[in-house]
């Protein structure tokens, strides 16, 4: 199976109950209501290199690309989080907690883990407070602020960068 097909399989594995779990996570952690984007409107993430920046921005203690999900948050979203009162650092910290929780959700979802295992041939990290799967991520959560609501969906690269392909090939060996 080609890598592109495997990534597609991972994408498919993230359908089902996962969006509901993510919705609950946002509700429970930040008190935010979010709505799922129609899958036909999912964005295509144009590049991979933003992950490290986002991980750091979200306050995760990752030294390298250790995020499966680097979520893209717009500045508008910061203002929607109850209790943050315009404090951007506080908002980032809260969103970091959501990402931490996401790691726990993923670690408990065998379908997603199996799909990633097939993609990367690397052992998953079953650790709730680390977001899953180092260095091989090609999937990105997308949150879109629209007025008072936040939509979310999963985006996937349509192509794989040479660097990522090398990482995937290396993990296979």
């Amino acid at each position: 199976m080609e890598i592109e097909e495997k990534i597609d399989k991972v994408m498919q594995s993230m359908l089902g109950e996962f969006p509901e779990l993510v919705r609950n996570l946002f509700q429970d952690t930040l008190g935010l209501e979010i709505e799922e984007i129609d899958s036909e409107k999912w964005s295509i993430v144009p590049r991979l290199s933003m992950k490290q920046e986002h991980s750091m921005n979200m306050g995760l203690s990752n030294d390298d690309w250790s995020s499966l999900l680097a979520m893209s948050f717009s500045a508008e979203m910061f203002n929607l989080i109850p209790g943050v009162d315009g404090d951007i650092e506080l908002a980032r910290s809260g969103l970091g907690e959501v990402l931490n929780g996401m790691g726990g959700v993923l670690a408990g979802n065998s379908t997603i883990i199996d799909a990633f295992q097939e993609l990367t041939q690397a052992p998953p990290m079953y650790y709730a407070n680390e977001v899953l799967y180092p260095k091989t991520s090609s999937i990105q959560g997308v949150l879109v602020c629209q007025g008072e609501t936040i939509d979310f969906g999963w985006a996937c690269r349509s192509t794989i960068s040479p660097m990522m392909r090398r990482m995937l090939e290396r993990n296979k060996q």
């Binding site: 306050g59 203690s61 209790g83 943050v84 650092e89 506080l90 908002a91 910290s93 809260g94 970091g96 907690e97």
Partner: peptide, 12 residues
Amino acid sequence: DDSTFLAKQIKD
């Protein structure tokens, strides 16, 4: 707690 957000929530 290393999360400023959660520390504030718990403090409140």
